[in-house]
């Protein structure tokens, strides 16, 4: 890859070209998303109840202080959300990479297999939640039916903290691994074969070919897709909500549910805004890490 080489033949003609190309995207973003983003920062310094006739009041960092020091749920929610994000991303990476490589290696039936393996991502999240709830049910679920069939004990999947964590993780991994698979598959498919022919001539074995040549080439799209998956995971809502509603207790409550409930059930707009700002910063840190990783691999 020759990314470092300046691409200047168009630049000489028109210095404005990149900005022109960016303008439609940013125009939309500024109207629809940048404005709420700034508004949200502003809200996080206010005490404002959505339904209250009392006008909002500027309170400085009070919302943040309350959140970090006095909110008993925030710590639980952070623990679950971060744990859930790390575990699901790791599993999706491994399974996604494997399935993409296997699918790419298939000569016959590849198109059909790909379709089948990608199906879970097409199912609406609400339906995924409800469908898996039937699967995890203690008495009438397929999972326990299978466990009993092979001679194990039933597990209270959704009623105990640890099993509930894994039930949510597996349901989420089931739904969104195809996302990673698909992007890797697209990355693999757009590589040209000459590279591999060259490697083959050089006498590299399969393992070397993969780690030295293929992996660095598919890393940029992989990093982007994992980065976005991480962001989606941090604020996951539907599947935990339908499977456990955050239970038992608050042991499986993600940030997404906390924000929604603070905003639209408690009407505490300032605090909800503060939580989403915290989430924004976590997201930026995550993005920085992924950008670093993909740059590092490229230069090496």
């Amino acid at each position: 890859m020759k990314n470092s080489r300046p691409f200047n033949f168009l630049l000489l003609k028109k210095k404005l070209t990149p900005y022109l190309l960016l303008s439609p995207a940013f125009l939309l973003l500024i109207v629809i998303l940048v404005y709420p983003l700034i508004y949200n920062f502003y809200l996080s310094f206010l005490k404002w109840r959505l339904t209250s006739p009392v006008p909002s009041k500027f309170v400085g960092f009070e919302n943040y202080v309350n959140l970090f020091l006095y909110d008993p749920d925030f710590l639980d929610v952070s623990k679950f959300s971060l744990g859930f994000t790390i575990v699901t991303i790791f599993m999706e990476f491994i399974i996604g990479l494997f399935s993409a490589l296997l699918l790419y290696g298939l000569v016959r039936g590849r198109r059909l297999m790909t379709s089948f393996l990608l199906t879970p991502y097409m199912v609406a999240p609400i339906a995924v939640g409800l469908g898996w709830r039937l699967m995890w049910d203690r008495d009438l679920g397929l999972v326990n039916f299978f466990l009993v069939f092979i001679g194990l004990d039933k597990i209270n999947w959704l009623a105990e903290s640890m099993p509930a964590f894994w039930a949510i993780v597996i349901s989420e991994v089931w739904r969104s691994t195809p996302f990673v698979t698909m992007i890797l598959l697209a990355g693999l498919t757009s590589l040209s074969n000459e590279i591999f022919e060259a490697a083959h001539i050089d006498g590299a074995n399969r393992w070397q070919t993969f780690w030295k040549i293929t992996f660095p080439l598919i890393l940029p799209p992989l990093a982007v897709s994992l980065m976005f998956q991480t962001i989606f995971k941090l604020r996951v809502f539907d599947i935990p909500f339908i499977l456990t509603e955050g239970g038992p207790g608050t042991s499986t409550m993600p940030y997404g549910m906390l924000i929604h409930r603070t905003y639209f059930k408690y009407f505490d707009v300032g605090k909800a805004a503060a939580i989403s700002v915290v989430l924004l910063f976590i997201g930026i840190v995550v993005a920085m890490i992924y950008v670093k990783i993909s740059k590092m691999k490229q230069t090496s």
């Binding site: 960016l22 998303l33 983003l37 604020r235 909800a272 924004l280």
Partner: peptide, 28 residues
Amino acid sequence: AFSRYRFKWSNHLLILMLATRLLPPVTA
């Protein structure tokens, strides 16, 4: 534009674009 051109603020704009997506939709 991001892939082929080197221009002022390009990295910042790329991050800004991402930042808009980091906001949980419910707050918008």
